[in-house]
Amino acid sequence: MTELADHSTDYGVVAAEPPEVMARNLRIGAHLWASASAFFFAAFLFAYFYLRALDSTAVWRPKHVDPSLTLGTLAAVSLVAAAVLLRFAVADHRADRLNAWRFKGAIVLALLLAGVVLQIVEWSTQSFGPTDGPYASVYLGWTGLLSLFVVGLLYWVETTLATSFRYRNTRRGAPVPAGHASGDGDRSDPDIENPLSLIRSELEAVSFYATFLSGIGIVTWFVLYVL
């Protein structure tokens, strides 16, 4: 043993971390994940401009390669609307209007889902396929992966909403069972003190990421449909 630690110390000293720690983790984690996502889509942006400028065989974008502007715009709008609404939901949560936040959260889920569905409708009604030149390639790859990210966002919003809903009748600060969501049969104590208080931080983190992703959505829309 040393001054700082001892093998015989009970593992229980680890228990019950204040939730503020995880709250900070979430905030910084969301920012870092956003920057990684930005680089992910930057590769598609690079590909777009590179191939457009090169156009070696003059097949960049044949006439019939023309995805529906209406559907594309609607998909982008639903993503942006979801992000904006989520901001209001955060404000509701801060003001302790929990039912209002849950209601808005449900609409956010519906909007995100609508965005993905619109995108799928667009793919299945368009008049071109992946073999129709570089623009079509970039368009399909980019929109496809953006939709995948939107599904990820949907999952994240859902978990927050689900926790809030599941414990809607639990008094704030009341204990939840230990190891509730972990597969750790070894724990007898909860590892985060009052984990329900993390809903707000998670909501703030996911709202930040949603705003970021709607920014990506706007860039996508502008580059693929407007330019």
Binding site: A162, Y167, A181, D186, I192
Partner: peptide, 24 residues
Amino acid sequence: LGFASYPIQRLLGKPPSLREKETA
């Protein structure tokens, strides 16, 4: 390995937790 269980539990609304299998 057990990676699916936490995400599914979260989907069902269980609150966040940190540790798995730390003492065995």
